[in-house]
Write a protein that binds this DNA or RNA. Structure first.
Lengths: 341, 341
DNA sequence: GTTAGCACTCATATCTATCGAGTGCTAATT
DNA sequence: AATTAGCACTCGATAGATATGAGTGCTAAC
């Protein structure tokens, strides 16, 4: 078992390492932190902490560096998660509320904020749109061959879908969209299946051929709502992180994040817990062994959910990042759920 | 004056340097390129080319490197601009046509294509929307406090603008937007000023108070169409360019490109010619001394214009990049002008 | 005008010596 | 029994010293 003193020494070592990025020695600790013991004592404790697996030594005769296990202990019991400042809160609120209504813009903006506040890489996904309830709907003629389908959820999120149609007349489109809205309003989008679209035909018997033409197109369009969209911001921050200054290391991470397929696996991997922290090897992806991930999920009306991920070096300010992730996650939940004050 | 042989030697040197990124020596040239003269002769010519300012020597006793002037000569008279392949053309066509209709998505997609085909950084701006003619218009209720104004140009470009309104009823919104469309259709968007909006009041006298309320909101919204939007893609390519492998150099460029203000100056700086190539110091921006810029403008119906920029190391495949920029620029012109086949 | 030959230059790579931060262990101290 | 002072030892980092070799400029011969 680990003693109280060992715990305090471990905390000091990790804090110092997070500050300096240098392996920390016993003398540094005894001088910088008021533990009331000499460097020799600390040296002995450090040897024990290494044996317990909390510390590592890059090579004999250098200082110690936290192991993944060490970080884990630090994160679980030592880090204190203060709430973020009032200023930050105000900026986040003003950037995410009352400005944006298109779901993808909202996710993008959230990712941008996350990456700016943490100076790390941020990824935000959009909750699957099809669990939301339909509140408004319009078909808009864009050209002779194209129509825009605009869906609005009861939570005030807008989604644009393009339809390719060779038969477009705004007057008819208005009629069709009004009718559709009249019996689809309030329905969740995933429930808008072919059967419910077929009702269109009953209601608009005088437009039979047009409706026949429209139905398969609508079917396709609704299918496209099933994909998960993800937005990454702040990739370039990787460059500015000491750990990855050697551009070879940065490349490995870039290459990983660039491949959307990787990202998808990665997003599934990231647990669905309210908030999760994964450190180095815990992520289970070789190219990210030098990284930590802080992720959270946000809910829309308690149902469908989107994901928020911050990726950075293991040596990050966990307390700060966690508080930012939490705050943005909650704000997104509110915004997507339509709670606007 | 420069001799024919010097020209051929210069061409060989620059080609080789573009391939290898290494200062090239006289022996390399005499062996790799069938010029029919010995290394000693080439050595003499190289000394002359250096005196003329076309080559530079990083240090005595290393090979030669092209100077900005050398690149300029190369670009002006040596590089051959082949057209891009049929496959590339097909991809570009399929990605830019019949899929996207929102102006910003289009620009984003174009920038993505550019950066993928060139492996360089690409920036695309949207032509000022306000020179286009209005073809369709809708006001859509999104929530109790928000309305979406959707504008469609005669060229099939869509623009969403959000309005904050505390008085929203879809029935009234429909009436207002129909009326607006009836007398604004065909008008260029910059001509839709307050005066023309005021006509609304005449036509919708029974909705007087609502129109009074709406007018200042619309005014603000239309003002927001004046800004130039720009989309950059492929920033991370900087990392993979040998010249900037030293991450300090990459940072300088990143920092420059990250600042939107810089980018604006930069976009103005970039000439309005059909196609322009600027090499190193010709750009006139210290942080980009090691870069070249290939830029082009595309027109919408011959009037308002957007910009396309590719930024990379001076040592780039000019012929290839120019052909890609040209092709995407022309395609964008067509798409924004509504020529869809 | 061209080329072979050679001395010279200088960035890069390799080796060596030194330095010093930090350790582990032992013996003295509390 | 726990703590600490002291000291020999380790090993990466840094600085010089030396070697390498690609490439040049110049001269003299062809």
């Amino acid at each position: 078992m680990i003693s109280e003193r060992q715990l305090r020494i471990l905390e000091a070592i990790i804090s110092d390492f997070i500050d300096t990025a240098q392996p920390v020695g016993s003398r540094t600790i005894s001088k910088k932190y008021p533990l009331g013991v000499s460097s020799a004592t600390i040296r002995n404790e450090m040897a024990d902490l290494e044996e317990l697996g909390y510390l590592e030594q890059p090579h004999t005769s250098s200082g110690r560096v936290p192991s993944d296990l060490g970080y884990r202990l630090y994160v679980d019991s030592l880090v204190n998660i203060h709430s973020i400042g009032i200023d930050e809160k105000e900026i986040i609120q003003s950037m995410l509320r009352n400005r944006i209504i298109e779901a993808s813009d909202l996710a993008k903006q959230a990712a941008k904020l996350l990456s700016e506040f943490t100076n790390l890489v941020a990824i935000v996904t959009i909750p699957k749109f099809n669990k939301c309830k339909l509140a408004n709907l319009k078909l808009i003629k864009v050209s002779d061959t194209r129509v825009l389908l605009i869906l609005v959820t009861d939570t005030g999120i807008v989604k644009n879908i393009q339809l390719a149609m060779s038969y477009t007349d705004q007057f008819i489109l208005d009629k069709v969209s009004d009718t559709m809205l009249s019996f689809l309003s309030g329905e969740t989008i995933e429930n808008i299946d072919v059967r419910s679209i077929l009702k269109l035909k009953d209601k608009l018997q005088n437009l039979g051929t047009f409706v026949d033409y429209l139905i398969p197109i609508l079917k396709d369009a609704l299918k496209s709502l099933n994909g998960t969209e993800q937005y990454a911001e702040g990739l370039s921050h990787i460059l500015f992180i000491q750990e990855f200054a050697d551009s070879e290391k940065a490349k490995v991470i870039f290459d990983f994040l660039r491949d959307a397929k990787n990202l998808e696996i990665f997003l599934d991997e990231v647990s669905a817990d309210q908030l999760s922290i994964k450190i180095g090897s815990e992520i289970g992806i070789d190219s990210l062994d030098a990284c930590s991930i802080i992720s959270s999920t946000y809910k829309v009306d308690g149902k469908s959910d989107g994901k928020i991920i911050v990726l950075g070096p293991k040596r990050m300010d966990y307390g700060n990042v966690v508080s930012i992730v939490n705050y943005i996650s909650n704000t997104l939940s509110d915004v997507f759920s339509g709670i606007n004050l």
